[in-house]
């Protein structure tokens, strides 16, 4: 029970103790309005309104968004990576996306990529479906067509995303994009601090890798930043 020094209530049949609080007691009428930050803010006079409201519209206009502060340090780069027949991989394009990128906490699906700088993760994400095309089943066709026709793609592309801030601070020659096939999926594959090739050595198989990212494949704005003299913010 409480160790504070507090009084005990008087018995139910005893009168209450006198008020001990500071300030005024209520009177019969309200006190005067108080200024808020030096200004009197009062509602306009209330007037009886016509309560027979017109029928509501089928749909109201969009609510008006408040101005929000620009969020600094956000945005990410989407690299387009081409995987060749021999497993070689190259970055063939990039786009800057003005949005915060969230990283999944677990691996799902049949493929996963990880972007690292010198072994330290910048981002990863799962890819459910890669490297094949499937023709839809032909429900009215001969038996052999009542399944997908699978086409293995000799070359294919996928998108790898990485937070712009992390990329801007990274030594590009040390940035790697690795694509893994999930050989042995488990229902729960949480992502830890270590690179996934180490954490899931048994479950993953690397199938393509980009070692080093050329400044030339960065989005134009980031290329410009890189050409400028190195500032103190660069590590």
């Amino acid at each position: 029970m409480s160790e504070r020094s507090l009084p005990e209530k008087p018995a139910s049949d005893s009168p209450a103790p006198p008020a001990k609080g500071k300030g005024v007691s209520k009177g019969k009428v309200a006190p005067r309005p108080q200024q808020i930050r030096g200004a009197m803010r009062l509602k306009p006079k209330a007037e009886k309104q016509d309560t027979s409201q017109a029928a509501a519209p089928e749909s109201y206009a969009d609510q008006t968004a408040a101005k929000r502060k620009a969020l600094g340090g956000e945005g990410y780069v989407r690299f387009r990576v081409r995987v060749d027949e021999d497993g070689g991989a190259t970055v063939v394009g990039s786009h800057y996306v003005d949005s915060t990128l969230i990283e999944p906490s677990a691996i799902h699906g049949n493929f996963v990529y990880e972007v690292t700088e010198d072994g330290k993760r910048l981002h990863l994400d799962s890819i459910p479906d890669l490297g094949v095309f499937r023709s839809f089943v032909n429900p009215d066709g001969p038996p052999e067509e009542r399944q997908h026709h699978i086409y293995e793609l000799k070359t294919y592309e996928f998108d790898a995303r990485v937070p712009a801030q992390g990329l801007a601070a990274a030594a590009l020659p040390k940035v790697a994009i690795a694509l893994y096939r999930v050989k042995e999926a488990r229902p729960d594959m949480p992502v830890g601090a270590r690179p996934i090739r180490i954490q899931y050595e048994r479950e993953l198989r690397e199938i393509a890798r980009v070692d080093g990212v050329s400044p030339r494949v960065l989005p134009e704005g980031m290329q410009r930043q890189r050409r400028e003299p190195k500032g103190s913010g660069r590590r």
Partner: peptide
């Protein structure tokens, strides 16, 4: 499109058929 994880291409074609894969 600012970004995409999956692309659905719709053909103006009344016949049945479809081809999927690779995102």
């Amino acid at each position: 499109v600012p970004d995409y994880n999956f692309v659905l291409v719709i053909l103006n074609e009344p016949g049945y058929g479809g081809c999927g894969g690779n995102g």
